[in-house]
């Protein structure tokens, strides 16, 4: 049986979950039930042959790529980049241009968990009423360091999505992240 993530009903519900996540950065949202990791569910919801995806850490199998109708490209040219959070950053994503900042990449990071990590971060910015704290597990610290560089000149930048088995947490480029000592 084909997994529900390839069905329009799942993708509609997952998309609403994504809208909620990006509207309220730092909030953990749970995707509808499926047999797949939430990162794959998100890609199934947003990607098809019209878009582009990089898979530098080889997290997708051949069947996923066939159903997504994509051939992975280099991270430097991809609209979506799927990465393992424990690995260090070793690429430069697209940041968009001044006239077309929407061409900045979307980074989908696979983590161990979205909370309970050793390091805590405080978030502020649009979508957050006052502040929110997050403590993701399985995220190399190079990601937020690089993110700060990539996102230093608004409107250019990257939009992140942290994913666990079933949960998602969004960090649009406008969210300011501060490590809490």
């Amino acid at each position: 049986m084909i997994d529900v993530i390839w069905q329009p009903e799942f993708q509609q519900a997952a998309f609403r979950c994504l809208v909620e996540a990006y509207s309220r950065p730092g909030q953990i949202n749970v995707l509808p039930a499926s047999d797949s990791h939430s990162a794959i569910g998100v890609l199934a919801t947003l990607i098809d042959g019209e878009s582009s995806l990089a898979d530098p850490h080889q997290l997708l199998d051949n069947g996923d790529c066939l159903r997504l109708q994509i051939k992975p490209v280099a991270p430097e040219r991809a609209a979506f980049i799927l990465c393992q959070g424990t690995r260090m950053v070793d690429f430069e994503p697209l940041l968009g241009t001044l006239a077309s900042p929407e061409q900045g990449a979307t980074l989908v990071l696979v983590l161990d968990a979205l909370n309970g990590g050793d390091r805590s971060y405080q978030l502020t910015g649009p979508g957050i009423e006052t502040t929110v704290q997050i403590a993701p597990q399985g995220l190399d610290k190079s990601w937020f360091k690089q993110r700060a560089n990539w996102n230093c000149a608004f409107p250019l930048g990257v939009d992140m999505l942290l994913t666990s088995e079933a949960g998602i947490l969004a960090l649009p480029r406008t969210t300011l992240i501060k490590e809490i000592d």
Binding site: L18, Y22, S23, E102, D159, P172, R173
Partner: peptide, 8 residues
């Protein structure tokens, strides 16, 4: 739409 939310 997701990009629109990310770049208010």
């Amino acid at each position: 739409l997701i990009k629109a939310i990310c770049i208010p």
